[in-house]
Nucleic acid binder design. Structure first.
Lengths: 349, 349
DNA sequence: CGGGAGGATGGCACCGCTGTCATTGCCGCC
DNA sequence: GGCGGCAATGACAGCGGTGCCATCCTCCCG
């Protein structure tokens, strides 16, 4: 059973099927104009030889690499992974392969690196996630190279590239409303890393909900975090040290919410009786911590899948229309998950 | 400043530098036998044109793709991501690119898919993580294709492929010893998914520690979990429902430990006073839950880096030695993290 | 019954690079 | 002074496909 030691090429298939190379190529690529019996003969030959087209040769000749790149900044925990799973799902379904590249957006040679990634590998398309979604250098290089790209949760929607996101402002608004409805009036807020889109939108939603409910935003109750556990511990301390402390705390992500919960536990608070806490993102952590965290779920995987679909759709019509306009900007639905970390404030049965 | 719209090729560089294509190729590939001034001229031309070698063409001509694949089964949360980060670090450092492929090891066409991945993309090497590390079909295909691969935490070390792992048995042994040292004698154990290597090794370590300390392994205290939160909730219930219940519980991973903690909280236990809990893996969850979990940290990223190093080392000497023998089997050091989820058993001040 | 449309197939250049081998020039050594 | 040896360079044939165009055949229609 030891076949020929060299991998079969299209030539071998052609010879075996008694057809020309070109016709085999047509069958492989599911092009039209091949008679049924010829097709069958070729398919049989392909199966018999276990022929697998060489992607490298294919790409070289056709200027299409069947490669989609995922560019991201720092490996953002479960989020990044979910994105990849989503992308992978779609890539697989459409015969694309996924290439992942981290890019240090702070480094001075972002340009060089981004260019290397895009140009050397001849990526067909790219999906961008935070924090490179809005990096001007990366975007420029992509534009220059003419590589289509889709951005997941960009800061600003652009006219040249599609995007996918959820309405974070709205989500934060609703979540804050939930706390208000429970009777909370002093609601602390821990912001995320400065300048992140998410930080701004979530904070805006919080402020608007309060204002709309006739509650003034008290700057004393707003802390600046960094999206990390450690940063939030300090914030939680300051918040809980206050004489007239908040009865609820809205942390801009789950990790920071976990820090608040831990700090509260440390002080012997019973949750949620003494303090309500909400997070954002619904990381796996959220339902495994105790008490399970009320939070917002972004359909991250689905967002990635949508991004991939848009990209692949774009690629498939390459050459026909250069770019559909206006480019799509999808807003996916989020879910508010009410779990057990929220309750009426103490004293208000 | 709008250069030529076509990407520069090696020919353009050669022309500009007044050299032959081949010599440019030599410079690009850092081969010997190029005079200093020629080298300089070529490098200048490369810089001036912003020339980037086309990987596809390079691969086609050289039979080397500079592509390393990461094959994994189900997206295993933070673990998989850490692996990728580790691999990425090394790939970047050595000019390789990472291609990630999920492979449904239960599907009937694993063979087809594995073969497609390996043969179509002409991967130079592959890193395997659970649960495909020991899939016979995948391994066979890799062997047949002659693609070097490294396995991270395989069930069985093989003579044909290097591996990287930690001593899980020893880690579980030490962790159990810790509980014993605190004074616990009734120590519950929640096993992982049946047939996983990790499950067996961790359980073995637990048993041996007990036995060595003169404590009999009580089957009533051993539950079969599945590495998931949900599975462990049921186990925890059964364990805690027992009249003579354990004073400590060793869950085979952090996620299951979180379930035990949650169940204990539900029952109003105060942790760790009423019940000690330990996990395994040190997922981000471990330090963010409350109380922070005593667990074992596998240097996952480092393991991935080691795997990549081994692989890249192998690739770089391709053709010289076909395979170093014996192949390396690295065992990396783990860390026992004593946090606040463990204490002396109740009644033993 | 001639001509044209369009399906089916093949020929061949070429994608951008590397491997192999040939060639050149120079140096050292007997 | 002739010659082997080696550094330095180049010529050229592929690697395994695809794009474009030519060709052939069949069928339909005026």
């Amino acid at each position: 059973m030891a076949g020929p030691d060299r991998k079969p090429t299209i030539i071998d298939v052609a010879r075996l099927a008694g057809a020309s190379i070109k016709t085999v190529s047509r069958v492989i690529n599911k092009e039209r104009y091949v008679s049924p019996d010829m097709q069958e003969r070729i398919e049989k030959a392909v199966a018999e030889l276990g022929y697998q087209p060489n992607m490298m040769a294919r790409s070289l000749a056709s200027e299409r690499s069947n490669l989609i790149g995922h560019l991201y900044g720092d490996a953002g925990g479960p989020y990044t992974l979910e994105i990849q799973v989503g992308l992978l799902n779609r890539c697989r379904a459409h015969g694309y392969h996924l290439m992942i590249e981290e890019i240090d957006y702070r480094s001075p040679n972002v340009e060089q690196r981004a260019s290397a990634i895009v140009n050397q590998m001849r990526l067909d398309g790219v999906v961008l996630t935070a924090p490179v979604t809005d990096n001007p250098i990366v975007l420029r290089i992509l534009e220059e190279a003419g590589v289509p790209y889709v951005r997941v949760t960009p800061q600003q929607e652009s006219e040249t590239s599609p995007s996918v996101r959820i309405d974070e402002r709205q989500a934060a608004y609703t979540l804050t409303q939930h706390l208000l409805a429970l009777g909370h009036r002093r609601i602390g807020f821990i912001k995320g890393k400065a300048n992140h889109t998410a930080t701004i939108l979530r904070y805006t939603g919080y402020c608007e909900a309060l204002t709309d409910a006739g509650v003034t935003v008290d700057p004393v109750l707003v802390e600046q975090g960094e999206f990390t556990y450690a940063s939030a511990v300090a914030c939680a301390r300051r918040l809980l040290d206050q004489p007239h402390r908040p009865t609820a705390i809205f942390a801009s992500n789950d990790e920071m919410a976990a820090a608040v919960v831990a700090e509260a536990h440390n002080r012997g608070f019973s949750l949620p009786a003494n303090l309500s806490v909400v997070g954002f993102d619904d990381t796996p952590l959220a339902e495994m911590m105790w008490p399970p965290l009320t939070t917002v779920r972004q359909p991250v995987r689905e967002m990635a899948e949508t991004a991939a679909d848009i990209l692949i759709g774009l690629l498939s019509q390459r050459g026909k229309v250069d770019w559909p306009k206006p480019v799509p900007h999808q807003v996916l639905a989020h879910t508010i998950l009410l779990r057990q970390s929220t309750a009426r404030p103490p004293g208000k049965a």
